[in-house]
Design a protein around this nucleic acid. Structure first.
Lengths: 239, 239
DNA sequence: CCGTGTGAAGTGGTTCACAGCA
DNA sequence: TGCTGTGAACCACTTCACACGG
């Protein structure tokens, strides 16, 4: 009955997936500048991690490097895109066309290719039918219908907090499988729907905590600050 | 990092800090609705975590509960605010007044109190002096001067990627200690400066990965025809 | 009794260090 | 020789389970 384990190796740590996305961006810009190969050292520096971690991350997706040499840039790009599922297109719906919604809807047609914006929603009657970034805004009551029709798989919530749960429910009933939530509330969703959140207040409060910690550390010891070496540890949001 | 134990107990796991911020928000809204006490069970459900984790998280900041009863809401609010350093105000500067910058500058005077927006910057000459959310926009060349003058401790970067590193450098030379980066680039900063990033493309790509994984999991097992039915038992990744 | 608080066990992710191959 | 790929040690966070106190 162990069974839980299912058919093994398809397990890439969540944290590694986030970093693969970063590597991909760095690699793409290297490719644009005509780089043919990179070593783990170069790539890891550009991505802000150490080289051991980078190699471990890449090992999760296979062995595409050449010992003594490095990695071929475009091979890696292709493999990472494959693993991240970027060879399929995932239609996105943005709900809540305020400043943030505008920013999202115009975000260069959304990061690279692969995430076409297929629908926009708001409650404001004055916005109905108005095109934003080329897509006309629909009413949030239409969410289930329109999302189902246009095969939206990712919903982005950029509404005020009070509206977020209702929007979430409608996205779910429209068959949306993943939700990216910018509203500062904890969403309740069935567990076959993946929810990620981006929470500005939380980010600021974490920074505030760091500042506070610095202050009490300072009086505890070490007058001559100037911390430890290395380690720029950029934290991707995670959860 | 040598991580010389320092002077003991001041170690709250980073992940726990992020959740404390969430608990704080939930507790605040409970307080508004006049709740006097909560149990770990109630609070954890509202925050989307399990109760063991919640109690462990709270134990990092002290023992403020009553056995057999629960926690007093306003005591917890006060203690979490203290730990997160929210009793001090941290001035914020927003750089890049596009759609996203607007959204940030208007974000209710920024999450709760505690994070007053003290300065706005952009390159666009047409924006100079124009007030956004009550604060006039200055030129990015002024960053070091203005930030130092106004005691900005948190810088928020909402510029196009190409400008981000230069902005980061100026913020650092203006004495900013923490940076929240919305631009899709890996910033290089001295290690006494805390950098966090919020990366939309990465978030979407993680969701894309989940979608892709679902597809191959589906063919790996599940012999019985089609039928959408519910999810194969989800591994439930976070929360 | 009931819920908090917490050592101890478990899990997942990171770092180390070196074997293996171009 | 140099750099990749990876088992194994290590560390951080989570979950368990139960003692403790109102």
């Amino acid at each position: 009955m162990p069974a839980v384990d299912e058919h093994r190796a398809r397990t890439i740590p969540e944290a590694a997936v986030a970093r693969l996305a970063v590597y991909l961006r760095v690699l793409s810009s290297m490719a644009e500048q005509g780089a043919g190969t990179v070593s783990s050292e170069e790539l890891s520096t550009a991505a802000g991690v150490n080289s051991a971690k980078l190699r471990k991350d890449l090992s999760y997706i296979g062995s595409y490097g050449t010992r003594g040499v490095g990695y071929e840039v475009d091979v890696l790009v292709g493999q990472i895109e494959r693993i991240l599922g970027l060879t399929r297109k995932h239609s996105v719906a943005v709900v809540g066309i305020g400043n943030l919604g505008h920013a999202l809807a115009n975000y260069g047609g959304f990061p690279g290719r692969g995430f076409p914006v297929a629908a926009l929603f708001d409650v404001d009657e004055d916005l109905m039918g108005v095109p934003v970034g080329g897509i006309p805004v629909s009413h949030i009551d239409e969410i289930p219908l329109v999302c189902a029709e246009r095969g939206v798989s990712i919903g982005v919530i950029a509404t005020p907090p009070a509206a977020a749960q209702a929007v979430c429910d409608r996205l779910v009933s429209g068959g949306v499988e993943c939700i990216l939530n910018f509203a500062p509330v904890v969403l309740q969703a069935p567990d076959h729907v993946e929810v990620r959140k981006v929470d500005l207040a939380v980010e600021l409060q974490i920074l505030s905590f760091q500042l506070a910690r610095r202050v009490d550390d300072a009086d505890g010891a070490e007058p001559t600050g100037n911390g430890e070496v290395e380690g720029v540890d950029q934290v991707v949001i995670g959860r």
